[in-house]
Design a protein around this nucleic acid. Structure first.
Length: 757
DNA sequence: GGTGGCACTTAGGACTTTTTAT
DNA sequence: ATAAAAAGTCCTAAGTGCCACC
């Protein structure tokens, strides 16, 4: 009773993530299918649908999807747009497109002949295989063998200079309003000259770096015990907890407001792990989580965070400076002569595991990482990071075949966590660039691949048909590959290859369309994928075949998994895997949509709306969702109010204009004429403002539950956006913020207005 | 082929800061 | 000046894919 009744919240995952309770069907038919053993049925049941609250979401989503789903080479019958006729453009008059192959931009590459004689002939050493491939991935400048140390080429000069400047921990990055000049006069003119790694050659030996030096991770702050006046109550009585037990209790107390704490699994897992932290006396006494009252602790933390907000300017500044200091010390490393930003240099603090969706491990205690858990990776000849006094690293190694600086093993899933570089770093950027080049190579042969999988739908071999149908989905719908997962260890989610019969319904005819497939499953992060699509007849027939005599929980593609699929893809094109299709389809969609939606005579605001729409088309394709912002309704309403006000203002202005015109007609003097002009201007200005507001409203509404960021950051070849900006004279800042510009510096530097994906 | 380990990319939500409206 | 909204950043979970080994 007491205690945690503080929470009773409502819905959490507003969005479309399932978590809870969905009852479910006849599950017991049981395991005679060779299938795995359904000990996890239980979990699965939970994610069964039928959750009415998703209703409207799905409707909407499916509407959008129908609208935008693209072409797949050929057919693709009518979609069910009918039901939702809708806003202007973006129908799918796009299909074509595939046909035309564009010339690769600049970095021409010896396009590897597509189906080359499988690897072996080319690559002898499995060891170096990967790297070699990368290299002749082409796209990167004419290669030349990189010599260990600075070569003689023209680059040397530039490099040297950078060495000096780049490496200096610039005391304070940005010149915050002048205060900079301290330290040394910034004589060093800052590394204003940004390093253009993309103009240099890449190493060819499979090593990721030659030199790496860093300071190691920043550990989580040690536990700071509660003041004695903040009490924990068990069964209504105050109880002083041992430090460890108390710390763990604070983790729970901090989440009191979160829906997690109302979930059985969460509570059960938490309580079990909490008890492990208790002394035997505590363990004996505390036997029921429901008798625990954490509210004082909760209030205490709330007050603290409140206090933090109320801090004076000076205090805040001090904290900011301290953070900056830590950043300068630990947030950078030196990799091959350049000072590069580290992404996550702080070790994850202890806390309660928050899995997403219906995670069987939610609530478990994520333990504190100590020095002896940490592996350091750096150059032998670098200054090794030193462990906190009195402690020792688990290991210091010097592996330049990997990119991480620090790693440790996490205790929930037993997986390894890494500290790596920021996306703006050379090592990440090169990889990112390469990813888009691979997608562009796919573009050149995608027609052939499509033709082939269509042929394969007729294959005599079941495994080939399954492979072909799966690939069709991956291509057409941008589904993820769908690796197998260990049951019971994670939320029950699937991707293409791991789809189960229960994840789709097929209808010979539905809503006036033939051969409709309705997908409904939870994908990555337990985000629901719901889509109804007409498919080709052969696909449909194949699906019927695959589903024959199967139980709902059986795999749809029982002869297929990601490794079989990827092996096949690898034969079609060097470097081709399932995920390349997502990248390819996302980028090509952006490009098409930009071409279609951008009208030359529109103003900047309208163009940006078009960009956002193109971006949105991709986000919808990739099913990138977000929970509608909590304040969405309200802010939408506010905006509408503003629009209404503006409209009133406009009609007033118009009226005034009219009367001034009438007046001018009568009086015919200069003054009256002038007045007319002034009024005209006013009307125009107001109209513009109104337009802007309306655009804003449209954009926001359309974006309600769509997340644009993920595709922008991970799927869209940035050169497409850069070229678009150049072509229409849109400042790049309108599209990419500072962080994004840093990540995409390579693209911003190299793409011209005629770049074509 | 199946399995587990490893490295690295992709992902949404929480949290913080900045901007805008009042 | 203050509040609200939006934008930006941080955080870390959850994917993909490859490899070694059996």
């Amino acid at each position: 009773m007491s205690g945690d009744n503080a929470h009773n919240h409502s819905q959490l995952d507003s969005g479309s993530r399932y978590n809870d309770s969905h009852k479910h069907k006849e599950k017991n038919k049981d395991k005679e299918h060779k299938h795995k053993d359904h000990k996890k049925d239980k979990e699965r049941e939970k994610s069964k649908h039928g959750n009415s609250e998703h209703k409207d979401f799905s409707d909407k989503k499916h509407r959008d999807k129908d609208k935008l789903k693209h072409k797949d080479g050929s057919s693709d019958k009518p979609r069910d747009k009918d039901k939702y006729k809708d806003k202007e453009k973006r129908k799918d008059e796009k299909k074509s497109l595939e046909g035309k192959i564009k010339k690769e931009n600049g970095f021409a590459s010896p396009p590897r002949i597509k189906s080359e004689p499988d690897g072996e002939d080319f690559y002898h050493s499995p060891k170096s295989l990967k790297r070699e491939r990368d290299d002749d991935e082409s796209d990167y400048k004419p290669k030349k063998i990189k010599v260990e140390n600075d070569r003689e080429d023209k680059k040397v000069k530039k490099r040297k200079q950078e060495e000096v400047e780049d490496i200096k921990p610039k005391k304070k990055t940005k010149n915050k309003k002048g205060e900079v000049a301290d330290g040394k006069k910034k004589a060093k003119k800052e590394p204003e000259e940004k390093w253009k790694w993309w103009e240099e050659e890449r190493s060819t030996d499979g090593s990721k770096w030659k030199f790496l030096e860093h300071k190691g991770p920043v550990f989580a702050a040690p536990y700071d015990p509660l003041p004695s006046n903040v009490k924990f109550y068990y069964d209504g009585k105050p109880m002083k907890l041992s430090t460890d037990a108390e710390e763990t209790a604070t983790f729970f107390s901090k989440m009191l407001e979160h829906d997690y704490t109302t979930k059985d699994i969460f509570r059960k897992n938490f309580f079990k792990d909490w008890r492990k932290e208790m002394t035997s006396e505590e363990k004996a006494k505390i036997t029921d989580l429901n008798k625990c009252n954490f509210t004082e602790m909760y209030e205490y933390f709330k007050a603290q965070s409140e206090a933090r907000k109320q801090m004076s300017k000076a205090e805040k500044l001090k904290i900011k400076e301290e953070n900056e200091r830590i950043l300068q010390e630990y947030g950078f490393c030196i990799m091959d002569n350049h000072r590069e930003r580290i992404a996550n240099f702080r070790i994850e603090p202890p806390g309660l595991f928050r899995g997403r969706g219906d995670h069987p491990k939610m609530g478990m205690l994520k333990r504190r990482i100590r020095t002896q858990d940490v592996i350091i990776n750096c150059s032998k000849d670098s200054k090794h990071p030193k462990p906190p006094p009195g402690t020792k690293w688990k290991e210091v190694r010097h592996d330049n075949k990997v990119t991480w600086l620090v790693s440790w093993t996490e205790n929930i899933q037993g997986s390894i966590k890494y500290i790596m570089l920021n996306p703006s770093s050379r090592i990440k950027g090169e990889k990112d660039w390469q990813k888009y080049e691979t997608a562009r190579r796919l573009k050149k042969i995608v027609d052939r691949i499509r033709a082939q999988y269509r042929e394969d739908w007729k294959s005599k071999e079941m495994r080939i048909r399954q492979r072909a149908v799966a690939l069709y989905f991956i291509d057409k719908l941008a589904l993820r590959a769908g690796n197998e997962k260990e049951e019971g260890e994670t939320a029950d989610t699937v991707g293409c290859c791991s789809l189960r019969v229960e994840h789709m319904n097929i209808y010979p005819e539905k809503d006036g369309q033939e051969y409709v497939v309705e997908f409904d499953f939870l994908g990555k992060d337990s985000i629901r994928y719901y889509n109804k699509v007409p498919v080709e007849k052969r696909v449909f027939k194949n699906l019927q075949l695959f589903m024959e005599n199967k139980q709902p929980e059986d795999d749809l593609f029982d002869r297929l998994n990601t490794s079989i699929l990827n092996k096949h893809l690898q034969e079609l094109m060097d470097g081709l895997t399932a995920k390349v299709f997502r990248t390819y389809n996302a980028s090509i969609t952006l490009q098409q949509q930009l071409n279609e939606l951008t009208s030359p005579d529109e103003n900047l605001v309208a163009k940006i709306l078009s960009y956002n729409r193109a971006n949105r088309a991709v986000a919808i394709l990739c099913n990138h969702q977000r929970a509608p912002p909590k304040t969405f309704e309200k802010s939408m309403q506010n905006l509408q109010t503003k629009i209404d006000a503006k409209k009133d203002q406009l009609s007033d202005a118009k009226r005034e204009l009219k009367s001034s015109k009438a007046d001018a007609k009568v009086r015919r003097d200069e003054k009256a004429k002038k007045t007319v002009e002034v009024k005209k201007k006013a009307v125009q200005r107001i109209e513009e403002q109104l337009m802007k507001l309306e655009v804003q409203a449209t954009d926001r509404e359309e974006n309600k539950q769509i997340a644009l960021g993920t595709s922008k950051l991970n799927y869209l070849d940035p050169r497409i956006s850069v070229a678009w900006c150049k072509k229409w004279s849109i400042p790049i800042e309108k599209i990419y913020n500072k962080t994004q510009r840093e990540k995409f510096a390579w693209a911003i530097d190299m793409a011209e207005d005629d770049y074509e994906f």
